[in-house]
């Protein structure tokens, strides 16, 4: 694994309701990396509590449960199953908490986990994950219709996140973004700013992400803008 870069911008909002995290540990067999973007749902209160809590649950699982699973050779589908159970429990906990306060909390989730050159992505909501290459492709489904979310964690009926599996090639790059970036930008914008052949180190990646954030704001974006760039 070469390097990563993170963008975490409030945009024109009063507070940043997104949560972004990246973690990595090395085992005897190889590297395990987790990156996630959680966007506290716009229009709902205390979005940062929902996104922060979801992130904490996944981080705890990453360090306490995942090493054993990797050691025993659990496949990605087995890990995804485990994660979906965890996300369901978090969904119920957030819903219960919100009901106690008389508020509606919710968060989207884009979770990327790589284990020894293979990855899985779990997606719920309108944040997204892209593979950055000459023709950047979106790897996740968008769970939104007419400006409203059709899947969200912590609010309404539980819908399991969608799963994407794939292989990582040396020199490839991935980008996880919140909706603040993917509303106004497209795949060609990402590949223009973050082409793996151009991005040689974390500083270059930071500059690329900064360029994208500025472009999004010039195009009228007002939402929080969060992104994680991973270069293998």
């Amino acid at each position: 694994m070469a390097f990563y870069s993170i963008l975490y911008e409030k945009g024109k909002r009063e507070k940043n309701e997104d949560t972004v995290a990246i973690h990595k540990f090395t085992t005897i067999d190889g590297e395990v990396i987790m990156a996630l973007v959680c966007d506290g749902c716009g229009g709902m209160d205390m979005g940062e509590c929902a996104s922060g809590y979801m992130t904490e649950c996944i981080e705890d699982w990453f360090y306490s449960d995942l090493p054993d699973k990797v050691r025993r050779g659990t496949g990605r589908r087995g890990m995804a199953r485990d994660l979906k159970n965890l996300i369901f429990r978090a969904h119920e906990e957030i819903r219960r908490y919100g009901a106690g306060l008389g508020k509606q909390l919710g968060t989207t989730l884009t979770l990327f986990i790589s284990v020894n050159s293979r990855y899985l992505i779990l997606q719920s909501g309108d944040s997204a994950a892209y593979s950055i290459s000459k023709r950047s492709g979106c790897l996740t489904a968008k769970h939104a219709k007419g400006g409203r979310l059709t899947r969200c964690i912590g609010s309404g009926k539980y819908n399991a996140p969608s799963l994407t599996l794939g292989k990582i090639r040396a020199g490839s790059a991935f980008l996880l973004v919140s909706d603040g970036m993917c509303h106004t930008l497209e795949g060609r914008d990402y590949s223009g700013a973050l082409m793996p052949q151009k991005i040689k180190d974390a500083d270059a990646a930071s500059r690329g992400l900064r360029t994208l954030a500025d472009a999004a704001m010039r195009r009228g974006e007002t939402d929080n803008i969060s992104a994680v760039y991973l270069h293998f």
């Binding site: 993170i6 997104d18 949560t19 972004v20 973690h23 540990f25 085992t27 005897i28 809590y53 090493p67």
Partner: peptide, 25 residues
Amino acid sequence: IMRRERYVVSRDWAVHYTSKQGRGL
């Protein structure tokens, strides 16, 4: 035994950005 007890060789990155205060809900 080593694979069981020392499977994780090192913890390398742990970066977390949030405006949420404290842990839990």
